[in-house]
Amino acid sequence: MDVFMKGLSKAKEGVVAAAEKTKQGVAEAAGKTKEGVLYVGSKTKEGVVHGVATVAEKTKEQVTNVGGAVVTGVTAVAQKTVEGAGSIAAATGFVKKDQLGKNEEGAPQEGILEDMPVDPDNEAYEMPSEEGYQDYEPEA
């Protein structure tokens, strides 16, 4: 019985440690998101679009440190934060509304985080759909 109880105690310690790591990862992701939003706020009209992409990228980098179902929630929060940063930029006159959601080359930025393969159960990952990809044929 002692062996059984000791095993359960060790398992509990492992769960607590994993929860603490997840909590730490979420806190880091939130900190990076805040950094990115402050970065966007300090940019001029020309830099705002690039700044919004930076927020998304920093958040995406930190999301990889967070495991399990938390990833889905962090990704949703990050996307809403990026959308909010863009709205703030438009409201303050840093950028025109028609410039939001495009990178410096004018290509749409939507789907940055949505296409990231995420499995809350950590069982399997699927690649994003290939609808947006084109076949590449090298020139002879």
Rank of each mutant, 00 (worst) to 15 (best):
M1A: 00
M1D: 00
D2Q: 09
D2H: 10
D2L: 13
V3A: 11
F4A: 00
F4V: 07
F4N: 00
M5W: 15
M5H: 00
G7Q: 04
G7F: 14
G7R: 03
G7M: 13
G7D: 00
G7A: 12
L8H: 00
L8S: 00
L8A: 01
K10I: 13
A11R: 00
K12T: 15
K12N: 01
K12V: 15
K12F: 14
K12Q: 08
K12A: 07
E13M: 10
G14E: 11
G14K: 10
G14R: 01
G14T: 14
G14Q: 07
G14A: 08
V15P: 00
V15H: 00
V15Q: 00
V16R: 02
V16L: 11
V16G: 08
A17Q: 03
A17R: 08
A17I: 11
A17T: 12
A19E: 00
A19I: 02
A19G: 04
A19K: 04
A19H: 07
E20C: 09
E20V: 10
E20R: 02
K21Q: 05
T22P: 00
T22D: 00
K23Q: 11
K23G: 01
K23S: 02
Q24F: 03
Q24K: 05
G25P: 00
V26L: 11
V26P: 00
A27Q: 08
A27H: 04
E28K: 08
E28F: 05
E28D: 03
E28I: 09
E28T: 10
E28G: 11
A29R: 01
A30N: 00
A30W: 01
A30M: 11
G31C: 03
K32I: 15
T33V: 06
T33P: 01
K34E: 01
E35W: 15
E35G: 01
G36T: 14
G36Y: 09
G36Q: 10
G36P: 01
V37A: 04
V37E: 00
L38Q: 08
L38D: 02
L38H: 09
L38I: 02
L38E: 05
L38W: 08
Y39I: 11
V40W: 09
V40E: 00
V40I: 15
V40P: 00
V40H: 09
G41A: 12
G41W: 06
S42G: 08
S42D: 07
K43L: 10
K43R: 07
K43Q: 09
K43H: 04
T44R: 02
T44E: 00
K45F: 05
K45M: 15
K45A: 01
K45S: 09
K45L: 15
E46T: 01
E46D: 06
E46L: 03
G47D: 14
G47P: 01
G47T: 10
V49E: 06
V49K: 11
H50I: 11
H50G: 13
G51C: 05
G51K: 00
V52Y: 09
V52Q: 01
A53D: 13
A53M: 15
T54D: 01
T54P: 14
T54R: 15
T54Q: 06
V55K: 01
A56P: 03
A56V: 14
E57I: 09
E57P: 02
K58G: 00
K58H: 14
K58N: 09
T59G: 11
T59W: 11
K60R: 04
K60W: 09
K60S: 01
K60H: 14
K60P: 03
E61M: 10
E61S: 04
Q62M: 04
Q62S: 06
Q62C: 08
Q62A: 12
V63Q: 01
V63N: 02
V63F: 05
T64V: 11
T64R: 10
T64K: 08
N65E: 12
N65P: 03
N65D: 07
N65F: 13
V66F: 12
V66G: 03
V66D: 02
G67Y: 06
G67F: 12
G67W: 10
G67I: 03
G68E: 11
G68L: 04
A69Y: 14
V70M: 15
V70Y: 03
V70I: 15
V70W: 13
V70C: 03
V71T: 02
V71L: 05
V71I: 03
T72F: 15
T72S: 05
T72D: 03
T72V: 06
G73C: 13
G73V: 10
G73W: 02
V74D: 01
T75Y: 11
T75R: 05
T75E: 03
A76T: 15
A76C: 11
A76I: 09
A76E: 12
V77Q: 10
V77H: 02
V77W: 13
A78V: 10
A78L: 13
A78C: 14
A78Q: 06
A78R: 08
Q79W: 04
K80D: 03
K80S: 03
T81P: 05
T81V: 13
T81H: 12
T81Y: 07
V82G: 06
V82N: 04
E83D: 09
E83R: 04
E83T: 13
E83Y: 02
G84V: 12
G84E: 08
A85F: 11
A85N: 10
A85D: 06
A85R: 08
A85E: 02
A85V: 12
G86L: 14
S87T: 01
S87W: 10
S87F: 03
I88M: 10
I88A: 03
I88N: 05
I88H: 04
A89G: 15
A89F: 14
A89K: 03
A90G: 10
A90E: 02
A91F: 07
T92N: 11
G93S: 14
G93Q: 02
G93V: 15
F94L: 14
F94E: 11
F94S: 12
F94C: 00
V95I: 15
V95M: 00
K96H: 15
K96M: 10
K97A: 15
K97S: 03
K97M: 09
D98E: 12
D98G: 12
D98Q: 11
D98V: 06
Q99D: 15
Q99G: 15
Q99L: 13
Q99H: 15
L100P: 03
L100N: 07
L100E: 11
G101N: 04
G101T: 14
K102V: 11
N103E: 12
E104L: 12
E104G: 14
E104V: 00
E104F: 14
E104Y: 12
E105H: 01
E105W: 01
G106K: 07
G106L: 14
G106Q: 05
A107P: 14
A107N: 05
Q109P: 07
Q109W: 02
Q109M: 03
E110I: 10
G111V: 09
I112A: 06
I112S: 02
L113Y: 06
L113F: 15
L113E: 09
E114G: 12
E114R: 14
E114I: 09
D115G: 03
M116Q: 03
M116I: 10
M116R: 06
P117Q: 06
V118H: 05
D119M: 14
P120S: 08
D121Q: 00
D121S: 14
D121L: 03
D121G: 02
D121W: 04
N122A: 06
E123F: 15
E123M: 11
E123G: 02
E123K: 14
A124E: 04
A124I: 07
A124H: 15
A124L: 11
Y125T: 10
Y125S: 14
Y125Q: 13
Y125K: 09
Y125P: 04
Y125F: 11
Y125M: 02
E126W: 08
M127Y: 07
M127T: 09
P128E: 12
P128C: 09
S129F: 10
S129L: 04
S129Q: 06
S129G: 11
E130G: 14
E130V: 13
E130L: 11
E131T: 12
E131P: 09
G132C: 14
G132S: 03
G132Y: 09
G132I: 13
G132E: 15
Y133A: 03
Y133N: 07
Q134R: 09
Q134S: 10
Q134D: 01
Q134T: 06
Q134P: 02
D135A: 11
D135Y: 09
Y136K: 14
Y136D: 04
Y136C: 05
Y136G: 04
E137D: 05
E137G: 09
E137V: 08
E137R: 03
E137Y: 13
E137A: 12
P138N: 07
E139N: 13
E139L: 04
E139I: 08
A140D: 11
A140K: 10
